[in-house]
């Protein structure tokens, strides 16, 4: 694997981590309106998958979507400003955390509806196949979404028409507070791929190298016209369902066990051990990222609010 790419993967994961931890603090201080679902602990998935994509490939994201946006190349100033509800945000303050899109980066939106993005990514893959432009689409979704009808319907369509789409399930074991295996008979979601006649792969969602490897294989397969792959990434969220939520349902021992696999702690050690970068190099990246996030906050706080009457714009296209 390309060494620069691995270093970039650390940088992107760390950017997501710091971004999310800052969002948590800002939200608790009531500096941000609305509510936020953080990607802390799951960074290796978005980064591993998006590192296998081209800039013009498509993704659809979820309510826990800031990580996908950043990993796909999103501008953190515009991302943060959108969370602040500012005119300089990605979507002029109209979308917020759960509805950010950046079509110029192939990002077709984070999505407030669980499972809502799966058919949309499949449709983007249909466009790519129809136009023969070589693009692929990735649908990111959670374990809960795999029980939605859209999961079944869209993957069946993607498979039936050999569309260049990769279905990436981020299985963090819980839907809000409900342990998903208490509402699902099977332990692994990847086994469901068999029902659609496509490969189903399980990967450690805390290991960006492993995620990249399976994503790359699925992306190559999709580009060759061989159809979809379902990738199940085993992961765990470090915080509650949303910022400010009770943590009464969280299993502390389970959380501590998963934190030992925290990619932000584990991955730089691996890079150092393999001689790819040294401690100073890691610290330098951390410093740069932290400064960039501070600047994004400053940018957002100094940005103008949207004009109130702009609420009525963008309802219809001309």
């Amino acid at each position: 694997m390309d060494l620069k790419l691995r270093i970039k993967m650390f940088r992107d994961m760390y950017t997501i981590r710091v971004f999310e931890e800052k969002v948590r603090v800002l939200a608790m201080q009531n500096k941000l309106p609305g509510f936020f679902h953080l990607y802390v602990g799951e960074e290796a998935i978005a980064v591993g998958v998006c590192s296998a994509l081209n800039k013009d490939d498509y993704i659809t994201s979820t309510h826990r979507g800031h990580g996908h946006l950043i990993a796909k190349g999103g501008d953190i100033n515009k991302a943060m400003a959108e969370l602040y509800g500012k005119a300089t945000g990605y979507n002029k303050g109209k979308g917020g955390s759960m509805h950010i899109a950046a079509p110029e980066l192939g990002i077709l939106g984070t999505n407030g509806i669980v499972g809502g993005g799966i058919p949309i990514a499949t449709g983007a893959a249909l466009s790519a196949k129809y136009k023969k432009d070589g693009r692929v689409a990735v649908a990111f979704f959670g374990d809960g979404a795999s029980n939605q009808g859209t999961f079944h319907e869209a993957i069946n369509i993607g498979a039936a028409f050999n569309l260049p789409v990769i279905y990436v399930c981020e299985n963090n074991l819980y839907g809000v507070s409900t342990r998903q295996t208490t509402v699902r008979k099977v332990e692994d979601i990847a086994v469901r791929a068999q029902a659609y006649g496509i490969p189903g792969v399980i990967v450690d969602g805390t290991d960006p190298d492993e995620v990249y490897k399976v994503a790359k294989e699925a992306v190559d397969r999709a580009r060759r016209g061989e159809g979809p792959t379902l990738i199940e990434c085993k992961t765990y969220k470090h915080h509650t369902h949303f910022v400010g939520d009770t943590d009464s349902y969280m299993n502390k021992e389970e959380l501590e066990a998963w934190k030992k696999k925290d990619p932000i702690a584990v991955y730089p050690k691996r890079l150092i051990e393999e001689g790819i970068i040294d401690e100073d190099g890691i610290n330098q990246i951390k410093k740069e990222v932290e400064e960039a996030i501070e600047k994004a906050i400053e940018f957002s706080e100094n940005s103008p609010d949207p004009r109130p009457e702009s609420a009525l714009e963008d309802v219809y296209a001309d």
Partner: peptide
């Protein structure tokens, strides 16, 4: 699959 192919169309429309 009404939800599936309607969503398919939404994604296709969003991408040209």
């Amino acid at each position: 699959s009404e939800a599936g192919y309607t969503g398919l169309a939404v994604g296709a429309a969003a991408t040209g």
